[in-house]
Design a protein around this nucleic acid. Structure first.
Length: 994
DNA sequence: CGCGTGTGGTAGC
DNA sequence: ATCGCTACCACACGCG
């Protein structure tokens, strides 16, 4: 039995009962469950094999970089269009080009944008996966395409197109600056060179050397075919394999070739000597000779037994073994399945308001333990104390049977502690496959029984089944007896089908009571409490532990104990609280909502929120966010490793997002950081120990599903949170407020059509907001001014009137509050709100900084983060960051700035510059650029570069700070410089006043 | 008051 | 060893 059949059962059972006069819907031929199947195994496989896109990673870091290309084409849609097609060197961009979504660019009549609801019959006969697909491949859905991929491809091609001219310009610039205008020998003519990893000399210098000697430089491997040489100082084993077909040379090839004034044979500097020879042999030999290489690869990164978060296969292998991940994934799948079955509510008839319901809460007894035990003939579920856990000491018990529980063993306990209570405890391995099998059997039986109008999935082993009692005589014994009979039969059927798994069932008229009845029924029992008087309900729940109420966990019990029951009992019961509380008391001690909820629960009544699942299950089960959390085995040394990790997480998330056909307007990063006093290595192997958490969310101007964009925001957020890489113990990325792409079609249509209506380009179409978003600071200002001059209307704003984030402003103001006047820039108040809402968070922050009116001391996060003072991006109190930073703005003389920068680097060479200082520094550079002082920027860049080199010459290790400085130079400074250069190209004379 | 962000609690085994 | 995930709600607080 697979999920497809199960889904049919689900569908058939409920639709039959819900509307008996209608014929059962023909089962969708090829149906929804493809989604289910593909969202598991297949995706996972694809994910593990899919090579990480190098260009995407780099691209995502190059956020502010070189959007000059977009600026250049900003007002020239024709050029944009021309550029769009041919150049899309990135694999991802190329994929996007193939995507039907973006191929279409012709406008569609509005009528097709909102497809009228098809007759039910036609919808039924249509396989639903294809219904989705047909919608998304329809021309109307294609309207969304350009926002999804097109701009990215555009961005990318523009960027690539621009890179060459930038390098060319830089070449001239360097030539003038360093060589008195004379040309350097074109040693690397026709060479396209990519630099991998850290090198000596560093990337910046090699880049310089390459371009001034006539070579061209690739900032990333786009398809690899265009690259003639890869320069690297050393290669990981994996890269060694990845690059084995390329000319990989040591940096000395560059330097020595220059010294020799001619291109030396690359073979003498080949990094992959053995492999290359072998490679040639392999071509000649039968394929068998190639075997060793693939075998090496798993050992390198995919060893299932070693969990190394720095390896590309980590996520995959971690998730495969994480019980909590599985539980969450199953749950999400079941919910999606439910929604798929009842697309648009077609087959679903929620109970009429006020209908009498019988709710059956069905749950396996100690599911994992039972299933694992049943698959091992050596053990007797009813005699041996059993538990499911990975290992022996600090591994957690996922589930234990009732024999073990009689010793005091509990779920979640560490095996070591459990063994103290129960020395004979037997630990069984997980058997995720069997869990799924048995779960399917359960759902199949529930759906096939025909007893229920709705089957609401709660988890892999737990469901809530709803029966409408309206046809039955009121409140009499027959309803109760029927429920008893149903319960008995379900339990027997499941036991038989699963060959020994027991389910317990609680049945009552409310969700709360059904749940309490279930608790009472466990293990292997049933408890039917249908149609009772309030008195008997009260009597029934009186003795049950408060903890058993839904939504009541350790914290709420603690609060109740402390503030309401004053520590009277160790384990308070529902009766305890009910006797000692009132609605007002609960609301005041626990909060309004929680208080009200609890008050109702104490009488066995559902509240608005927890019964929402009954009233509007589709809404209840609809997905509103997706996230990845990893709080185990996180051990990083450098920010770069973390960046890569973030990239992988974002890829993972966007893959899911794509499967769901959704986009996100917001991403939240949650960082789990080792507590200051906590030991470096906690008791639990690779555990996180005691931690603090910090989170930060970012908005996208336009909802996106692009890994690169999301990743950029997340990496930026990570820096904002200032967690030292070595103290990172967990990381979570959430995509919030998800929207279906198909739902966005209507919203987006208007701006597009406006654009089409006036092809002259005098209107400001929605799409160009993206372009604007991406502009570097100085140009952005220009463009903004230009827009104003032309009185170009901006696209409609999203409903919200507020812009993304408050705290960065506070952060800035807490530290640089006095800079208001000098940094103030023009932004007309009428545009402000609408405009801001369309800008990416990062740019919003910049603008906000300029226009901030807030004068607040550092936020609490800021304070908490700086208490340690030695973090990488964490400003040390004894580092003179602020005075220096303020000085940037007033310094005009190069000599002064040089000295300042040197001392800044000196001070931060170990721990790295503070992000705020860098941002301020960026501002300074932007100002310089705005004034056309490109030569100043160039000089500063050279100062920084050479000073970093100076540091590296006597530092053995590679301190965090220097890496960050180098990265800053490469990914932020150079682009600024380039943008500035490109801008001043037309008019301003570049001169040096050394 | 309405809205946004960041934090925290809870659920499943 | 060991695989401490994930979705969602509610709250506190800040802002205008």
């Amino acid at each position: 039995m697979d999920y497809e059949e199960l889904a049919q059962l689900l569908s058939d059972a409920s639709s039959l009962d819900a509307s008996p006069q209608e014929p059962p819907p023909p089962p969708p031929p090829d149906s929804p469950l493809r989604l289910y199947d593909s969202s598991r195994g297949a995706i996972a496989r694809e994910r593990s094999q899919r090579p990480f896109s190098q260009q995407q990673r780099l691209l995502s870091t190059l956020d502010d970089d070189s959007l000059v290309g977009l600026v250049n084409t900003f007002d020239r849609p024709t050029q944009r269009a021309r550029l769009r097609r041919p150049a899309a060197p990135a694999d991802d961009a190329a994929d996007a080009e193939d995507d039907p979504c973006i191929v279409t660019s012709s406008p569609e009549p509005p009528s097709s944008v909102v497809p009228s609801t098809p007759p039910a019959s036609s919808r039924l006969s249509e396989s639903d996966s294809s219904s989705d697909r047909s919608r998304s491949s329809s021309p109307t859905a294609a309207r969304v395409g350009p926002l999804k991929f097109g701009d990215y491809a555009q961005y990318f091609s523009d960027k690539t197109a621009h890179q060459h001219s930038r390098d060319e310009y830089m070449r001239k610039l360097y030539q003038d600056a360093l060589n008195g205008g004379r040309e350097y020998p074109p040693i690397f003519k026709d060479c396209t060179i990519y630099i991998n990893g850290r090198t000596f000399p560093d990337r910046l210098q090699l880049h310089q050397k390459i371009i001034i000697h006539g070579g061209s430089f690739k900032h990333f491997l786009s398809g690899k075919k265009s690259v003639t040489h890869i320069v690297a100082s050393n290669l990981t084993a994996k890269k060694r394999i990845e690059f084995q077909n390329y000319k990989v040379v040591a940096p000395a090839w560059i330097t020595e070739s220059i010294a020799a004034s001619k291109r030396l044979p690359w073979q003498d500097y080949a990094l992959i000597t053995g492999e290359y020879g072998q490679q040639k042999l392999q071509i000649a030999r039968p394929p068998a000779a190639a075997l060793p290489a693939p075998e090496q690869q798993p050992a390198d990164g995919f060893d299932a037994n070693s969990l190394d978060c720095k390896q590309p296969g980590f996520l995959q292998s971690f998730f495969a073994k994480s019980r909590l991940h599985q539980l969450s994934a199953w749950k999400a799948d079941l919910r999606a399945l439910f929604c798929e079955k009842y697309v648009e509510g077609a087959h679903l008839q929620p109970p009429p308001k006020g209908a009498r319901l019988a709710i059956f809460h069905v749950d396996f007894d100690c599911f994992f333990a039972t299933v694992s035990a049943l698959s091992d003939a050596r053990y007797d579920l009813s005699r041996d104390p059993l538990a499911v856990a990975h290992g022996n000491n600090s591994s957690e018990i996922a589930s234990c049977n009732y024999v073990a529980r009689s010793f005091g063993v509990k779920n979640g306990m560490w095996v070591r502690s459990a063994r103290r209570l129960c020395p004979n405890l037997i630990c069984l391995p997980y058997n995720f496959e069997q869990y799924e099998v048995n779960s399917k059997l359960l759902y199949q039986i529930l759906a096939g029984s025909g007893f229920f109008q709705m089957i609401l999935p709660i988890s892999i082993d737990e469901a809530i089944c709803v029966k409408y009692l309206d046809g039955l005589p009121d409140g009499d014994a027959s309803a109760h007896q029927q429920c008893e009979a149903i319960t008995r039969q379900i339990r027997r059927d499941v036991f038989d089908a699963t060959n020994g798994c027991t389910v317990s069932i609680g049945c009552s008229n409310s969700l709360v009571l059904a749940r309490l009845a279930l608790k009472k029924a466990k293990p292997n029992g049933q408890c039917v409490m249908a149609s009772l008087e309030q008195d008997s309900i009260d009597a029934f729940i009186e003795e049950l532990p408060l903890r058993d109420l839904p939504g009541v966990g350790a914290t709420i019990v603690d609060k109740v104990q402390q503030h309401i029951l004053f520590e009277q009992t160790a384990e308070p019961t529902i009766g305890d609280l009910k006797r000692n509380s009132s609605l007002q008391l609960l609301a005041s001690k626990l909060g309004t909502k929680t208080g009200h909820k609890l008050h109702l629960f104490l009488s066995g009544k559902d509240d608005e929120e927890n019964s929402r699942v009954l009233r509007d299950p589709l809404d209840y089960f609809a997905r509103k966010s997706i996230s990845v959390d990893i709080n185990y085995a996180i051990r990083f040394d450098t920010i770069h490793e973390i960046d890569e990790f973030i990239d992988r997480i974002c890829e993972h998330l966007t893959t899911k997002l794509g499967e769901l056909d959704m986009v996100t307007p917001q991403v939240t990063l949650k960082v789990t950081r080792r507590c200051e006093h906590a030991p470096i290595e906690p008791a639990k192997y690779l555990g996180s120990g005691e931690c603090d958490t910090f989170s930060r969310s970012s908005r996208f101007g336009v909802p996106t599903c692009e890994a690169g964009l999301i990743s950029t925001e997340v990496k930026s957020s990570f820096r904002m949170l200032g967690c030292p890489p070595k103290d990172l113990r967990g990381i979570a990325v959430q995509l919030n407020k998800l929207e279906k792409v198909s739902d966005r079609v209507c919203q987006l249509r208007l701006p597009f059509r406006e654009q089409d209506a006036s092809s002259a380009g005098s209107r400001f179409p929605a799409l160009n907001v993206n372009a604007f978003n991406s502009l570097p600071g100085a140009l952005k200002e220009d463009v903004r001014t230009e827009l104003l001059k032309r009185k170009i209307n901006l696209p409609p704003s999203p409903p919200s009137k507020r812009s993304a984030s408050n705290s960065p402003v506070k952060d800035y103001w807490g530290r640089h509050g006095k800079r208001t006047e000098t940094l103030k820039q023009e932004m007309p108040s009428t545009l402000d709100e609408d405009f801001m809402n369309h800008l990416p968070t990062q740019i919003q922050r910049e603008i906000k900084w300029d226009h901030a009116i807030v004068k607040k001391a550092s936020s609490s996060v800021r304070n908490r983060l700086s208490r340690k003072g030695t973090g990488v991006l964490n400003l040390s109190k004894n580092r003179p960051s602020k005075p220096e930073a303020v000085k940037f703005q007033s310094l005009e003389r190069p000599l002064g700035i040089s000295r300042l920068i040197k001392s800044w680097i000196d001070d931060t060479i170990d721990n790295g510059p503070h992000i705020d200082d860098l941002n301020l520094f960026d501002k300074y550079l932007t100002k310089l650029a705005a004034k056309g002082k490109t030569h100043h920027i160039l000089k500063i860049a050279r100062t920084m570069s050479s000073h970093l080199e100076y540091h590296s010459s006597f530092t053995k290790s590679n301190p965090q700070g220097r890496q960050e400085w180098e990265e800053y130079l490469l990914i932020r400074m150079i682009p600024t410089l380039t943008a500035s250069a490109a801008k001043s190209d037309s008019g301003v004379q570049v001169t040096f006043d050394l």
